[in-house]
Design a protein around this nucleic acid. Structure first.
Length: 613
DNA sequence: TTAGGGTTAG
């Protein structure tokens, strides 16, 4: 049976008992007929006008009439509440609702829904609780919105509690409720529970499939997203824009260009090619797969571009290190009379940062408030800190953090720590590390960064100390891996990975390349090996980094002259950056590497980032 | 009366 067993699994209980909740029914109150015929006529007249009401102004007039004639607590109230909610005035709807002596379950549902759809999740759940306390039985119309609110708050505990309630109320087989459960668990990051609920569904409609696919995509389960998209199509369920958006996101994350091109074609066949959301997602996919040209071609051919579409294209140039083009596009956006938002400025400031455009970045940052009335948010400050610190203006960056009107988070200090590694500033690094670890003690990346800084100065005792602190704090180092698509399959390599069937050939090629690489001036950067081991062993450890393995796989399996595209989950390592430059020259290939922050296009011994990254 | 969605720093 689905109900209690799934719930027990989700909650990690071996035995699960249904909680007792008191439930009583409540019927919809009919329109109260008031003794005088004229009042009744007025009520009927208002009711028929409410039926036709299509604007907030008309509703306000009818509401005033309703109050003037003392018609409160009648069936008219229900209609007025519903209309206020539909006009997104849930606050006014609440005031009418509060005047009712015994609102129906239907109206409670409308209010729970009203708050949830307005993003007022706490209010929505507050009403949900109140409803339960009054002994009203939530039903299949209540639970999807109560669950949506739990998802909106990422409140897994509350979500589990609502799951228990809906099992008690006999709603666990409802297809809408189940889809909302899948969505709630995946938005709370508990994708395994989402899958358990999905697997137990006896009937799966389009929304249940898309909830699961979107859940996988937004939890970074890219392979599963693609697999589920195929399973959905195999089951005979027609895909829609939401499932297409999810699969495009996963495809971009994997850097799977061939699959992405197939999806673009699929979008054209299924008639979504003029949907601006889908177009933006395709552009983003092409960008992430390293094909800026295809993204731009699509952008140019799209009419009615909105702020999101423009911002996405601005970001595309930014992460490919073409900051000047981002700025040109920003001007084009203003000429097209599309108003930027704070995300647009995040994209443009980040683009300036990747290209080292200090003055341009400063101007944009100032014009946010001055010309557009947009107050900079944390992300915008983070970009400015990154821009300054990457250019070596560490004290100015520190000043900006100390004087910003918002509370800086660990990641803003983290940008400065990244620059301390580039400029070897150990004093500042040690000073700001305290801020960082106070704000985010278990972030593995900052520990690794600090450890890197010590390692570069051969402070091995401190490297060891940081490692011990990491273990104590449970900050596990994220394992690096690189992906490469070949023949519609994405191949994954970890550092020193020997599990691939072609491992022998791959390692052989890297060993073969070592001598010509050295002849072209490549010197292994052993600073990037974080262990106090012999230099020779360090060089060998560097040779089998995941990005080098993936590139060697690409060289072996693709025809001479074709580009090689690799995606890495962490930042590219400095030694690999040097190595790939010379490899691109030796094998005469364009090698495009996407790391967690940006793209590097290697060609003929050079990188598009100009070694500024 | 019921659901799922495109761009956001490092």
């Amino acid at each position: 049976m689905f109900d209690t067993r799934t719930l027990a699994l989700v909650n990690g209980f071996s035995n699960f008992k249904l909680p007792c909740i008191s439930i009583s029914s409540c019927s919809t109150k009919p329109l109260k007929l008031i003794g005088s015929k004229s009042i009744n006529d007025i009520a009927m007249n208002i009711f028929s006008e409410l039926q036709r009401c299509s604007s907030l102004i008309t509703l306000r007039k009818l509401h005033a009439k309703f109050i003037a004639h003392g018609l409160k607590d009648t069936g008219l109230s229900t209609k007025i509440v519903v209309l206020y909610v539909s006009f997104k005035r849930v606050d006014v709807a609440r005031s009418v609702f509060e005047c009712l002596s015994n609102p129906s379950s239907y109206l409670w549902n409308i209010m729970v829904k009203g708050y949830a759809t307005q993003g007022l999740f706490g209010h929505s759940l507050g009403l949900y609780w109140e409803m339960m306390q009054k002994g009203l039985k939530p039903d299949k119309y209540t639970f999807p919105f109560a669950l949506k609110s739990c998802a909106g708050l990422s409140d897994l505990n509350m979500g589990k509690l609502v799951h228990q309630h809906l099992v008690c109320c006999g709603c666990s087989h409802d297809v809408f409720v189940s889809a909302a459960l899948v969505d709630m668990y995946s938005k709370c990051g508990y994708i395994e529970a989402a899958r358990l609920v999905f697997d137990k569904m006896s009937v799966r409609d389009l929304v249940s499939w898309t909830s699961m696919i979107s859940g996988y995509a937004h939890n970074g389960c890219n392979i599963e997203t693609m697999a589920f998209f195929n399973l959905m199509r195999d089951s005979g369920t027609q895909s829609n824009r939401v499932s297409i958006l999810s699969v495009l996101l996963a495809c971009g994350n994997l850097g799977a260009l061939r699959k992405g091109e197939w999806l673009h074609n699929y979008v054209i066949q299924t008639g979504f090619e003029f949907d601006i959301l889908v177009v933006t997602a395709i552009m983003d996919m092409y960008t992430k797969c390293g094909s800026l040209d295809l993204a731009r071609r699509l952008f140019d051919g799209t009419p009615g571009k909105d702020v999101v579409c423009w911002s996405a294209m601005i970001r595309s140039y930014g992460i490919h290190g073409q900051g000047k083009k981002s700025l040109d596009l920003f001007n084009g956006m203003l000429k097209a009379k599309v108003k930027p938002n704070h995300v647009t400025f995040t994209c443009i400031l980040s683009a300036c940062s990747h290209s080292g455009l200090l003055e341009e970045g400063k101007k944009c940052f100032e014009s946010m408030v001055k010309d557009f009335g947009i107050s900079p948010q944390l992300n915008n400050y983070a970009c400015m800190v990154d821009l300054l610190s990457r250019l070596g203006q560490l004290s100015e960056a520190e000043k900006l953090i100390e004087n910003m009107p918002l509370e800086p988070d660990a990641s803003i200090w983290g940008s400065l720590l990244g620059a301390c590694r580039i400029y070897g500033n150990l004093d500042l690094a040690e000073r700001i590390a305290d801020h960082i670890f106070a704000l985010d003690p278990s972030h593995s990346g900052y520990h690794v960064l600090l450890s890197n800084i010590y390692a570069a100065k051969c402070r091995w005792k401190d490297v060891e100390k940081v490692r011990k602190v990491m273990v104590r704090r449970g900050a596990n180092k994220v394992q690096g891996f690189s992906l490469i698509e070949f023949n519609n399959v994405v191949h994954k390599f970890g550092v020193g990975d020997r599990s691939h069937p072609q491992s022998h050939k791959i390692n052989g090629l890297l060993e073969e390349l070592a001598a010509p690489m050295k002849r072209l001036g490549y010197v292994p950067l052993t600073d990037f090996v974080l262990h106090d081991i012999e230099e020779e062993a360090k060089e060998e450890a560097l040779l089998y980094h995941s990005e080098k393995l993936a590139i060697a796989f690409g060289i072996i399996n693709t025809p001479p002259g074709t580009s090689i595209r690799v995606t890495k989950n962490l930042r590219i390592c400095g030694d690999c950056h040097n190595a790939i430059k010379v490899i691109s020259k030796i094998v005469n290939r364009v090698i495009i590497v996407r790391d967690m922050h940006r793209f590097h296009h290697f060609e003929d011994g050079l990188c598009s980032c100009g070694d500024y990254w």
